[in-house]
Write a protein that binds this DNA or RNA. Structure first.
Length: 338
DNA sequence: GGTAGACCTGGACGC
DNA sequence: GCGTCCAGGTCTACC
């Protein structure tokens, strides 16, 4: 997909200097969310694109990099940007691509787990906002991957803002805002976005993001503050609607806190097929947890890249995966099959 | 602290 | 084409 330029608006190009080890294809295609709407990864062109939410409305971006680590990221934007919008866009891109994790910090991880030194893996793709990360986590709970893909497509199409790009009918949409979801009826979410029983919980989460932390709302700064303990963050997250042990641990890794593992049926499958563990699921989950405990503050990344490497051994390099064909690949039956 | 069952959806399967 | 079963994490009730 090429950027569809907005009529009457001058497109903009930004350049961002990433960390010296940053490689777009490897570091974007490092977590399943790169396959979820509104994200798009163009396999042939090796270009990342999506609609971004900005003050004057959504803008489509295309991000590319010459495939040499540390080369600048070239970001084509479908319209002109005000100075605050430019700053906001850069902030969101830095979050999404984890550009604030320096090459030195990734090297620290490789010291603890040298298996990923050659490939350079270390950054885990996430969303431009914490709200999108939380909702993507909720839509990944208690469903198989194709349903998660579908829910995110529908959330964007039904409640996201459409990029004004001329007569095209398939114009991209942004991820819906907290404001939009907070004012949406749960029945609408259920009927049109197919989120099922998550409807009320999703609306409540959006409202909590819009509530002042003094009144019980979600305090993003506090959650992202390195001086806040992992324990405190976990205790807060687990109290949120729709967030259980798996989701809390997953949101923690998305916050850059890698100590805990989001243990799910995939962890059990991995424990059985790759680590050779035997016994009931509950026991295997505990053993997977202790298996990665020696990696300490980097446990999640050691665990995750082991899983990711397994997926790539089955389906080829992740930068070759197409969203519409991954659905059937990432089912328990497909992954358990020899 | 541990466990059982309900919650929903989409896909697989059998007829 | 229809009905049934199953997978998936969270939540509540219960022991």
């Amino acid at each position: 997909m090429n950027v569809q330029w907005v009529r009457g608006e001058m497109p903009t190009t930004l350049k961002i200097k990433p960390p010296s080890d940053y490689l777009l294809g490897r570091d974007v295609c490092s977590y399943g969310y790169f396959l979820l709407a509104p994200n798009r990864w163009d396999v042939k062109r090796r270009v990342f694109s999506r609609a971004m939410s900005l003050a004057r409305g959504p803008a489509l971006i295309e991000v590319k990099q010459k495939p040499v680590a540390g080369n600048p990221l070239a970001i084509d934007v479908s319209r002109s940007l005000t100075r605050p919008e430019r700053a906001e866009l850069e902030r969101q891109i830095r979050r999404m691509f984890r550009l604030d994790e320096s090459a030195g910090q990734i090297a620290e991880f490789h010291k603890i787990d040298p298996r990923w030194r050659v490939s350079g893996r270390g950054r885990v793709f996430r969303s431009p906002t914490l709200f999108e990360d939380v909702l993507k986590t909720v839509t990944s709970c208690n469903v198989q991957w194709p349903s998660t893909v579908h829910m995110n497509i529908r959330l964007c199409e039904v409640l996201g803002d459409r990029v004004a790009s001329g007569p095209e009918t398939s114009a991209p949409h942004s991820f819906p805002s907290t404001k939009k979801i907070a004012s949406t009826r749960p029945q609408t979410l259920r009927a049109r976005c197919r989120v099922g029983y998550r409807d009320q919980r999703i609306v409540e989460l959006a409202r909590l993001f819009r509530t002042n932390p003094r009144n019980g709302g979600i305090d993003q700064e506090w959650l992202e503050d390195p001086s806040t303990s992992d324990e405190s963050v976990h205790d807060f997250l687990i109290e949120l609607p729709g967030i259980g042990p798996y989701a809390a641990a997953n949101i923690m890794q998305l916050l850059g806190r890698y100590t805990r593992l989001p243990l799910d049926t995939e962890s059990v499958r991995h424990g059985r097929t790759v680590l050779g563990l035997k016994g009931p699921s509950t026991k295997i989950m505990k053993r997977v947890k202790s298996h990665f405990a020696p990696f300490g503050a980097h446990a999640f990344r050691s665990y995750w890249f082991e899983l990711w490497t397994f997926y790539e051994s089955r389906h080829g390099p992740s930068w070759m995966w197409e969203r519409d064909s991954t659905g059937k690949l990432f089912t328990a039956s497909a992954l358990n099959a020899d």
